[in-house]
């Protein structure tokens, strides 16, 4: 592969650094062994009811989570959220389900589909799917396939449409799925998003809506 060749030839220090690392690792370091039985210790609380935990963590993360029974209810909720936002272009991930949903919810709004390129600077809202939802941390997992990298961070509001079957109990399960499904063979990017963008850099005071969305809305429809 041409890149591989370039990466190696342009780099005179590479072998030198590797040599130093290998020489250093030959020095034996006595480290206290990890006590036996430690692997059995449970680090995180077991999650009995993922949906309840997800809702609870969403609230703690200052996210909005709406549970809906069917597609119609989802479209209604989407319409309600979109109506509360300023006029302007919505960026929507190209997907048959989202097309139906958005056409029901906001037939009049200008839409930029993800197949037409990245969201613009003035984009008001983004609607995407997620790869998974994580109960433990109240997070959504998105990949480049969910409308690209900018979809979840450029507009001031991000709406995620997900199905209950996408909910996994914890981070370990979500990361295990990424490994197993070889997500990074198809995506150059993935992100676990846990709430709206925020900062506490001034006097440790929490400000919601820093560089990314001020609002993160999850429309969680029951079933698969």
């Amino acid at each position: 592969m041409p890149q591989a060749k370039e990466a190696q030839t342009e780099n005179s220090s590479r072998d030198q650094i590797l040599g130093r690392i290998r020489a250093a690792l030959r020095i034996v370091v006595s480290e206290p062994a990890v006590a036996a039985g430690d692997s059995k210790r449970v680090i995180f609380q077991t999650i009995d009811d993922p949906l309840q935990r997800f809702e609870q963590e969403c609230a703690a993360n200052l996210m909005e989570c709406a549970l809906t029974a069917d597609g119609e209810a989802s479209a209604q909720h989407l319409a309600k959220v979109l109506q509360s936002l300023p006029e302007g272009e919505a960026f929507v991930q190209e997907d048959p389900t989202l097309r139906r949903l958005v056409q029901l919810a906001a037939p009049a709004r200008a839409i930029r589909w993800s197949t037409e390129g990245a969201p613009g600077e003035a984009s008001q809202v983004t609607v995407t799917l997620a790869e998974a939802l994580i109960a433990q941390t109240g997070s959504i997992l998105v990949s480049a396939g969910c409308g690209g990298r900018g979809a979840s961070v450029i507009a001031p509001c991000h709406i995620v449409y997900a199905r209950a079957a996408q909910l996994v109990p914890d981070l370990a399960t979500a990361l295990g799925c990424i490994s197993q499904q070889r997500t990074f063979d198809r995506n150059s990017f993935a992100c676990v998003i846990s709430g709206s963008s925020r900062t506490a850099d001034i006097e440790k005071i929490l400000v919601q809506g820093a560089h990314g969305p001020r609002r993160l809305v999850v429309i969680l429809q029951s079933g698969t």
Binding site: E57, A60, N61, T137, G138, S139, A144, V153, L171, F184, R186, N187, S188, F189, A190, C191, V192, I193, S194, G195, S196, S197, R198, G212
Partner: peptide, 14 residues
């Protein structure tokens, strides 16, 4: 509990 954006980048745009 976790940082808001826990991002994973696996390379250039595919």
């Amino acid at each position: 509990g976790i940082t808001t954006y826990s991002t994973m980048i696996a390379g250039p745009r595919q």
